[in-house]
């Protein structure tokens, strides 16, 4: 959307400081492109074992549909799994509205916790229902 001439999704990864990785997301996060982001994130995690902060720079994010949100949630799982914190920088208003509507912003930005180490957040799956 932002850069129709650049094609659907472009990702640029940098590591400005030890333990910190920035991924700049340019373009749309949707059904056909989310896989690219997830691969980029897993690569970043694999190449930076002591990662503490993963920043997604979303200033040039175009459209983000439900698959895009699903990918952000998956990214949060990845970072939570390695004890890193996810930052969603320069969020466009449309993304903020989506995160607000779906009640996911707090979860995405939450500090990694012990529960995150269990992928899928299933720690409570066996609890007695309240």
């Amino acid at each position: 959307m932002t850069h129709p001439d650049l094609g659907p999704l472009h990702l640029l990864t940098s590591a400005p400081a030890p333990g910190t990785v920035h991924i700049t997301v340019v373009g749309d996060l949707e059904y056909d492109t989310v896989e690219d982001l997830l691969l980029e994130v897993s690569d970043a995690l694999a190449h930076h074992p002591g990662l503490r902060h993963l920043h997604l720079n979303l200033a040039e994010l175009g459209m983000c549909d439900s698959m895009g949100l699903s990918a952000l949630l998956q990214t949060r799982r990845f970072t939570g799994g390695v004890g890193a914190r996810l930052h969603l920088d320069h969020r466009p208003p449309a993304l903020d509205r989506l995160l607000d509507l779906t009640g996911t912003l707090d979860h995405l930005l939450a500090l990694p916790s012990a529960a995150d180490r269990t992928p899928g957040g299933r720690t409570d799956a066996l609890d007695v229902p309240d």
């Binding site: 949100l69 699903s70 949630l73 998956q74 992928p119 899928g120 799956a125 309240d130």
Partner: peptide, 21 residues
């Protein structure tokens, strides 16, 4: 709220982050 909590638990899986609204 109780319905949605239990539905959520039934759906959460480590396999993917597909969700429903």
């Amino acid at each position: 709220h109780r319905m949605l909590s239990m539905l959520n638990r039934a759906l959460v899986t480590s396999d993917h982050t597909r969700f429903a609204t």
